[in-house]
Amino acid sequence: MGIKAVNLNYIYGQGTAFEQYALKDVNFEIQDGEFIGLIGHTGSGKSTLIQHLNGLLKATSGEIYVNGENIYSPGYNMKALRSKVGLVFQYPEHQLFEVDVFSDVCFGPKNQGLPKEEIERRAREALSLVGLDESYYSQSPFELSGGQKRRVAIAGVLAMEPQVLILDEPTAGLDPRGRDEILDQIDRLHRERGMTIILVSHSMEDVAKYADRLLVMNHGEKLFDGPPKEVFKHYKELEQVGLAAPQITYIVQDLRSRGIDIDDNITTIAEAKEAILALLSGKEKT
């Protein structure tokens, strides 16, 4: 499902002394099935932007097209939009409330007015997608570990069967293994189901590893838009706006400055390992 934003502006306190642009003239187009990493410093407009994409916030001016339809046109079905574009907030586990895991995941589809069998089918499927088997169904969500709670919360959104999944820092506060598990599962949804993913993250290493394309926000404006390898070449500009490149990018740059002819497109450990081993095995390039 494609999403297009045209000249999007969002102004807080318009007409008052505190008027401030949270989004300023933002344009982009996301194709069906893309994995987008959305990065930017705190307060750069990332969260404001994603809340526009399922109609939780309405732009001060500008348009959003979902599947070619303008979501601000009169009579547009916002409720349907919200089940097509699933939004997982920061710390989604704070929104768990049911007595057991299974009921919690059923809550969304139940509100969509679906028949009972369909609700349960979706809940089962969503829970299996996040790697929680039947032994968890009757447990209280509050007695699970941090990473498990978060997976239940994500399953709650998946049960709505969205075509686009937006996640706002889904790994904040998780241990490294928990982080890898969640990101691997999101990646699987992307590859196996063709789901469009928008991942908001403060980890440059994570977006370098998973995203096809990065959108970089700075003070409400779009600063860069391109594949991670292209974007991270601007690491000096990224540092100026409170971001960074993955550590591997810096290692590659250091090696280059010491006269090693290593590809400056490298952003992940696996790529760096392969390139260094290749350089050490053949003498033509060193």
Partner: peptide, 8 residues
Amino acid sequence: AMLDPNGR
């Protein structure tokens, strides 16, 4: 845990 790279 909740900060961007610069904040960290």
